[in-house]
Design a protein around this nucleic acid. Structure first.
Length: 571
RNA sequence: CGGGGUGUGGCGCAGCCCGGUAGCGCACCUGCUUUGGGAGCAGGGGGUCGCUGGUUCAAAUCCAGUCACCCCGACCA
């Protein structure tokens, strides 16, 4: 490829509104161009890298007998009504109407489409198992796209779906995918880690995320350096001390005008924050529920979701008042309401606590669990905080921001039952297909690879993802000898099968070198008069910055060595 | 959706407070010089200042509305 006519609009100056380092570098290195919030064009070299990531994915999927297919983006809305996800996804779904007024949407994912194929094609246990996968554009109208390519409204996702006869089959497929994903991320050179996760909208029993630690990430993960325990903050646990047992006191109302927040009440009553009980009301799948956590803790909505068995949202202020007779800020678990009460484990049979009085402007002191009210269940509801102790080994937990690269789910029969995707087993009994789904954010692979390798001069691609293996830089394009020799090297490398760029622009040496550094091509071959006189060219290793001067006939070997050195290892 | 911020040539910005018809750096075009870390000189092209309305003799500048984009938050009682 000739740089003089290649679309790589590199930027000397940093674009103003990019903050994530991968976003800045992708713009500066001319990999992407924004069209609209969360919508990007991939320019040729960016797309080159993306194709490499996709090829790695395809190779590894092939090894576990995955069958690649291509599914529609434009889908009739009814199919999402069958599973209820047209409602669950809500405004995150791009909806439109066709010319006849028929409701459609742009697919945010493809479980429903897969099921619609399976229910027609899979009849017998002999047809199973199946692994179908796709790499294609998905659409989600994210409330807040951010970080360039990290959260987009239109993005490339590799999604794989397994179909099995039973849970055992699902286990096998799940483990195969898990192993394949490990190889994929290793081959991409990413220092990933796996965490236990929250299944969210997807439903299902088990799920794990493949994470990459980065300041630009949106997820928080509790990590233990000592034993390797790692879990998404939504589901992480820790060893925590229970609330200390106070003295038994009479339940007493105290006036707390306009003191709503835990901080306000704690300061006003001069009571430590951990003696307060936060009384939270949520709307669950079967109505309102009450959740109690310590004043110093935060509720994990994911944990509550798992406990009540369906999606939750904070109750609206009207709903709260109608049920409790008081406003948010003055609520307590005692008194007459008929809500199920879930209390955090920290509270088991505790007394002498403070909470709202269910009367605006008042709180109560001396609250005693079991005496003043009876929780339905003591469960883990709180979010883990940094520096708490690891539930596995007891060492200190760290909270790390991370990019979610991939997420694997055991879906079970949620979709197959809803959509009637069934088969006959060996005994002639009709059963729903047992499914798994396994996603990878293709753009996030690039973003993570860039963030993990950059230096002050720009990107440093490894050999697996680089858009070009090497770049030949004739320093002075008005020197015929230099140009001729550079062209020779370019042709020779090209014919040897390398993906090669030549910077044939009539530009100053500094411009070409800075650009080569910024775009991160691993090998730079600098052809100049002064070295040519000695029959040498300079070869620079972008990773180490090391320069060597090699004979013309040795260039290919040296290029190979450098590429070899920056090829990610597979463990 | 709540809060904050920004919209002026391809990119980065100044001008706005205090209205008088748009400027700087980079990039681009032409010529000459230059050629090992984002060159120098000379000449040149490109913007109805996000959009709509209003005030005014006059609006990038003041007022109102609207759109777009960025950042933080989105339950925290």
């Amino acid at each position: 490829m000739r740089r003089s006519n290649y679309l790589v609009p590199t930027l000397k100056e940093t674009p103003a509104d990019a903050t994530a380092s991968s976003h800045r570098l992708m713009l500066r290195a001319g990999l992407i161009k924004m069209l609209s919030a969360g919508i990007y064009s991939y320019l040729p070299s960016g797309y080159n890298s993306m194709k490499k990531a996709m090829e790695i994915i395809r190779e590894e999927m092939d090894l576990i007998d995955g069958q690649e297919l291509l599914l529609p983006c434009l889908t009739p809305l009814e199919i999402w009504d069958e599973t209820g996800r047209s409602v669950e996804y809500g405004d995150d779904m791009f909806k439109l109407k066709d010319r006849r007024g028929h409701a459609c949407c742009l697919a945010p994912t493809h479980e429903e489409i897969i099921c619609s194929i399976a229910r027609n094609q899979i009849r017998s246990w002999r047809d199973l198992p199946q692994t179908w996968f796709q790499i294609q554009t998905k659409f989600r109208d994210e409330p807040r796209p951010r970080g360039g390519v990290l959260r987009m409204r239109q993005f490339l996702m590799k999604d794989s779906y397994s179909l099995d006869r039973d849970e055992d089959g699902l286990d096998v497929n799940y483990q195969k995918h898990r192993a394949a994903y490990q190889r994929i991320f290793q081959r991409c050179g990413l220092d990933y880690f796996i965490v236990g996760a929250y299944s969210g909208l997807m439903g299902g029993s088990a799920s794990e995320e493949f994470m990459y630690e980065s300041q630009s990430g949106e997820d928080e993960v509790a990590r233990c350096e000592a034993c390797g325990y790692a879990a998404n903050i939504e589901v992480a646990t820790s060893n925590v001390d229970p609330v200390s047992d106070g003295d038994s006191m009479t339940l007493t109302e105290v006036e707390t005008p306009n003191q709503r927040t835990v901080e306000e009440v704690s300061a006003y009553l001069k009571i430590p924050i951990n003696r307060l009980v936060k009384t939270l009301i949520y709307m669950g799948p079967t109505g309102l529920v009450m959740a109690l956590v310590s004043g110093e803790d935060e509720l994990s909505e994911a944990k509550l979701t798992a406990i009540v068995g369906g999606p939750v949202r904070p109750a609206l202020s009207d709903e709260v008042f109608q049920c409790m007779g008081a406003d948010i800020g003055f609520l307590g678990p005692h008194g007459d309401h008929n809500l199920p009460i879930y209390a955090d484990l920290k509270f088991q049979e505790k007394k002498g606590l403070v909470t709202g009085a269910n009367r605006n402007g008042y709180h109560v002191t001396g609250l005693e669990f079991e005496r003043d009210f009876q929780p339905d269940e003591y469960v883990d509801l709180r979010k883990v905080k940094a520096d708490e102790s690891c539930p596995v080994c007891g060492k200190i937990l760290r909270i790390a921001r991370s990019i979610e690269l991939g997420h694997i789910f055991k879906l079970g029969t949620k979709y197959s039952e809803a959509m009637g995707a069934k088969f006959l087993d060996e005994n002639g009994i009709e059963k729903p297909i047992v499914m798994g789904s396994y996603g990878i954010g293709v753009e996030r692979i690039l973003a993570a690879a860039i963030e993990g390798s950059e230096d002050e001069n720009g990107i440093r691609w490894n050999s697996a993802l680089t858009p070009f293996d090497a770049i030949v830089i004739p320093l002075n394009t008005s020197d015929i000898k230099v140009v001729k020799q550079a062209e020779n090297i370019y042709n020779e490398l090209y014919l040897s099968g390398f993906e090669i760029m030549i910077d044939d622009r009539d530009a100053r040496p500094g411009v070409k070198m800075k650009d080569a550094d910024l775009t991160g091509i691993p090998v730079h071959i600098v052809v100049s008069q002064r070295n040519l006189d000695k029959d040498l060219v300079e070869v620079k290793n972008r990773w180490t910055g090391e320069r060597s001067y090699v004979k013309l006939e040795e260039v290919i070997d040296v290029v190979e060595d450098i590429l070899e050195a920056c090829t990610p290892e597979i463990k």
